[in-house]
Amino acid sequence: MTYTFKLNEQIYKITLEENEGQIEVEIDGEKLPVDYRKIEDNLYSIILGGQSLTIGVFKKGKKIQVFFDGDLYDLESISEREQKKSSLAASGVQEIKAPMPSRVVKVLKSEGDEVSRDEGVVVIEAMKMESELKSPIAGKVRNVMAKEGDAIEAGTVLMVVVSDTPPASE
């Protein structure tokens, strides 16, 4: 089976197949023998090239969290069709969403403002702490939905930023 994942805005393809009783993975054109066992729900022991790895994996729909070497990675499993669509979205229109239930402290940009990549656009407060939400792309602010003082749910769209470079035609 071949799986396609998006991780840190990059697309990866991985093939898992059984060959004469051996499991093999193909990733980035490289073939590696792999031996794995499920230890319990969400925990796998993987032996890869003699290295013993214990990796946590939590799958919810298309979203996959992988806990590896102390850090948690967010992966998304995508089909061929979605792959095209998502690469358009990634470079074209970006929604700034609330990552958790919180309150809007400050809206730093207005409609029409230019923003650079990783520039702070909205300040929110949750768990006694203020955090700045950043624009993942450079571009122009198209819509501002957030109002200072608003109580917001996780996933609420606070702002829409449109890329100033034409979307890559992949």
Binding site: F5, Y12, L16, K38, L48, V57, V66
Partner: peptide, 18 residues
Amino acid sequence: RDMKPALIAAAIAMENST
């Protein structure tokens, strides 16, 4: 860092869940 192990683990979890 080398993300291969994480990606392989994700593929294994997909394989198991299907």
